[in-house]
């Protein structure tokens, strides 16, 4: 008995303090008094414990699930993940909660399609210290943009050279395909500077006015740009 009670008694006053206690309890009393109160009203104590556990765990998990990116609804295509339903009226409750918390205005189905990538074709996380070749074709679209972003706010001291390419301005080869290099150092051709010195980066490919938004399942690896790691500085 003496083993079990101090462990549970240590928990119950914390729970009782966090919420309005149902009955006045003298806080000045020592642990012995609390232990006696616990023994006498263990049902009430356990109820408070269960309520506190449910409230804290439920709110924390809801916060965790709706913080950051969308937890569900992505369709993997090679290294890319397409988010066809992020802006749809039938999107799942988690997607709606994420959009509401971030103030995001996602692309609607008739407007375009967002694809993101945080890994390369080998499945390794994209790192700002490494250089990557991103090339190939894109699904049919009237216009597209390919942008890179680091996590969190941008470094204030860093000059904003270029954050991405649009389908109009990118240099292409004769067959209409393109290749760009994401690297910290200046590169010939389509050079996309790394957004920061180190740390994870994310690529976003936004297809505007595309029929692919309605049929994401028909896209395969060859229809999205390949991401190949060329090497790392460190």
């Amino acid at each position: 008995m003496s083993l079990a009670i101090p462990g549970s008694a240590g928990r119950s006053p914390a729970a009782g303090d966090a919420r309005p206690a149902p009955k006045p309890r003298s806080l000045g009393g020592a642990g012995r008094l609390v232990a006696r109160a616990w023994r006498k009203s263990s049902v009430a104590g356990l109820a408070i414990y269960a309520l506190a556990l449910g409230g804290v765990l439920g709110l924390a998990s809801a916060d965790w699930a709706t913080r950051g990116g969308y937890p569900f609804g992505g369709v993997r295509i090679g290294a890319w993940t397409a988010w066809p339903r992020a802006g749809a009226a039938q999107s799942d409750p988690y997607t709606r909660a994420v959009n509401a918390r971030r103030g995001e205005i996602p692309l609607a189905v008739g407007e375009g399609l967002l694809l993101t990538a945080s890994v390369d074709d080998q499945g390794q996380a994209l790192d700002a210290a490494c250089s990557y070749r991103i090339g190939g074709g894109t699904p049919p679209a009237r216009a597209w943009t390919l942008t890179v972003a680091g996590r969190g706010p941008r470094d204030p001291g860093r000059p904003a050279v270029r954050e991405g390419f649009t389908s109009t301005e990118i240099l292409r080869s004769a067959d209409g395909r393109f290749a760009l290099v994401l690297a910290p150092e200046v590169q010939p051709g389509n050079w996309l500077p790394s957004p920061r010195d180190s740390g994870p980066v994310r690529l976003a490919l936004r297809l505007y006015d595309t029929p692919a938004a309605a049929s994401v399942g028909s896209l395969d690896r060859d229809s999205v740009p390949a991401i190949t790691r060329l090497g790392c500085a460190s």
């Binding site: 356990l46 109820a47 414990y49 269960a50 309520l51 506190a52 556990l53 449910g54 409230g55 804290v56 765990l57 439920g58 709110l59 998990s61 809801a62 916060d63 699930a65 709706t66 409750p93 988690y94 709606r96 909660a97 959009n99 509401a100 918390r101 971030r102 103030g103």
Partner: peptide, 27 residues
């Protein structure tokens, strides 16, 4: 009590996720 707490946590989780778009002031 722990089991009841976990079930409650599930209910609170679902309620919170459904309530966020309604209550959000930053959407």
């Amino acid at each position: 009590a722990t089991l009841i707490g976990l079930v409650l946590a599930g209910i609170v989780h679902i309620a919170a996720v459904l309530a966020i778009p309604r209550l959000s002031e930053t959407d």
